[in-house]
Amino acid sequence: MSENSGNNEAPNTPTPPGTPSGTPGTPSGPQPEPIRFFGTTWVDHDGGYGLRRVGVAVGSLAAAVAACFVLRFAFQGLEIAEVGSLVGMLVIAMFAICSAVAFRKTWEAFGSRPKDPAREDALRGLKSIGFIGSLLAYFVRSLIEAPGEKLRRTEYESARAQFEKRRSTRTGNPAARKRPKRR
């Protein structure tokens, strides 16, 4: 038998999700929530965080511009079909209003969790029509920070503080006890 018969994993292999935090290699306490396109690089701004922010900004702006061209072609189709100026104005108003609502709701989602998830589900169709507003919200927010970073950082830091407080005040925890200095 080899020396390593009890351990089939290679050394320094990351532990799979769901493994208890007491196992070696897994930090104890709350873990940061990953952000789309950023993972957990937002915690220490490492792992290409700056490049990812630039990529999200450029990508969301490019997607918004491409979407505007697609909407322009759709509007030209309405002009070719000669549906009338009223329908054309209604279509423009619909996309403008839906984009404004989608921008506002997306921007609010970066700062706080939704208070009523059922209402958010009901607005999903409206936000999908106004997807240009959501893309522009991603663009503007990525100029400031990773979209949703402030909310997740606040939640993560408060969870870490609560964990440290519970860990240090728990009786019988030898890791939290201060060791007396020897003379």
Results as ranks from 00 to 15, higher is better:
L78C: 10
A62S: 12
L136E: 08
L86M: 11
A57Q: 00
G130P: 11
L123I: 09
S128L: 13
R113Y: 07
G47F: 13
R152W: 04
S142N: 08
G39C: 13
F95M: 01
F103W: 06
F38G: 06
A81Q: 13
A109T: 09
V58Q: 03
S168W: 02
V91F: 15
E145F: 14
S134A: 15
E149F: 12
V70C: 04
R72P: 01
I92R: 13
L135W: 03
E145N: 15
A146S: 11
L136M: 15
V101P: 02
A161F: 08
I80A: 15
Y138D: 06
L136F: 15
R170G: 00
E157T: 00
G55M: 06
Q76V: 12
F163C: 03
L126S: 06
V43N: 09
A63G: 02
K127R: 10
W42P: 05
F38P: 09
F37T: 06
G133H: 14
E157F: 00
K105T: 02
S112R: 15
L123E: 08
E164C: 03
V70K: 08
E164A: 11
R52D: 00
R170S: 06
T106I: 02
A146H: 13
L151I: 01
L61D: 01
G55R: 04
G111S: 13
A93W: 03
R167A: 07
S112V: 13
F139I: 04
W42N: 06
G59E: 06
S168L: 08
G125Q: 12
E145S: 15
V56P: 04
G77P: 09
K105V: 04
T40W: 11
R166Q: 08
S168E: 07
P147H: 14
V56H: 09
G88F: 10
A137R: 07
A66V: 13
L61P: 01
L51A: 04
M94T: 11
L143W: 04
E157L: 05
R153T: 00
A100H: 02
G47I: 10
A63M: 05
M94Y: 03
M89C: 03
R170V: 02
H45M: 10
E79L: 14
